[in-house]
Amino acid sequence: MITPHAEAFFDPLTSTYSYVVHAEGNPQCAIIDPVLDYEPHSATTSTRSAQQLIDYIKKNQLELQWIIETHAHADHLSAGSWIKSQLGGQLAIGTPITQVQHTFKNIYHLNDQVKTNGEPFDRLFAAEEQFLIGDMVVDVLHVPGHTPADMAYHVHGLGIFVGDTIFLPDVGSARCDFPGGNAEQLYDSVHRLLAFPEDTVLFMCHDYPPTSREAQYHCTVADQRKNNIHLRDGISKAEFVAMRTQRDATLGLPKLMLPALQVNIQAGQLPTAEEDGHRYLKIPLNRF
Rank of each mutant, 00 (worst) to 15 (best):
A74S: 15
P197Q: 03
G277L: 08
F167I: 07
V190H: 08
P209A: 00
A238T: 15
S85R: 13
H22F: 13
H109L: 15
S78R: 01
P120N: 02
L53D: 03
H142A: 12
P148T: 01
R287V: 15
T165F: 10
L194Q: 07
E119S: 13
M204K: 01
R192W: 10
H156I: 11
N117K: 05
M1E: 10
E129A: 15
R192F: 12
G94L: 08
P179A: 09
H5R: 15
L36I: 06
L202Y: 04
P254N: 03
E184I: 09
I31C: 07
F121H: 06
T47I: 10
F125L: 15
H146V: 07
I283R: 15
Q113L: 05
V162Q: 05
H156T: 12
T200P: 08
K115Y: 07
V143D: 04
L202G: 03
K255P: 11
A238L: 13
G94E: 09
A50P: 00
T211F: 05
E24K: 14
A238K: 11
T250I: 04
M204W: 01
M136L: 15
D170T: 05
P179Y: 10
G157Q: 04
V35E: 00
V162T: 14
F104H: 10
I32C: 01
T16M: 00
K237T: 14
G163V: 03
N111C: 05
H191Q: 14
I54V: 14
D112E: 15
F240I: 06
V155Y: 01
Q61H: 13
A126H: 13
F104P: 05
A242F: 07
G163S: 09
T116D: 00
H73P: 03
F161Q: 01
E274I: 11
I83K: 01
C205Y: 10
I93C: 06
A242Y: 05
S15I: 00
S212Y: 03
R123C: 09
R232W: 05
R175V: 11
Q99G: 05
V221Q: 14
L194I: 03
G180I: 03
A127Q: 15
V20T: 04
T70Q: 07
S42V: 10
R123Y: 13
L231T: 06
Y56S: 05
Q51A: 09
P284G: 07
E69V: 02
V143L: 06
Q51D: 14
T16F: 00
L256S: 04
A222L: 11
I229D: 01
N228C: 06
F121K: 08
M257H: 11
H146A: 11
L261Y: 04
A8T: 09
K226D: 09
V143C: 09
F161P: 00
T200H: 12
Y108W: 12
Y153I: 02
K282N: 14
V171R: 09
A273E: 12
E128Q: 13
N117H: 06
L202Q: 02
V138Q: 06
A222T: 02
D75I: 12
Q65Y: 06
D188C: 15
M243V: 08
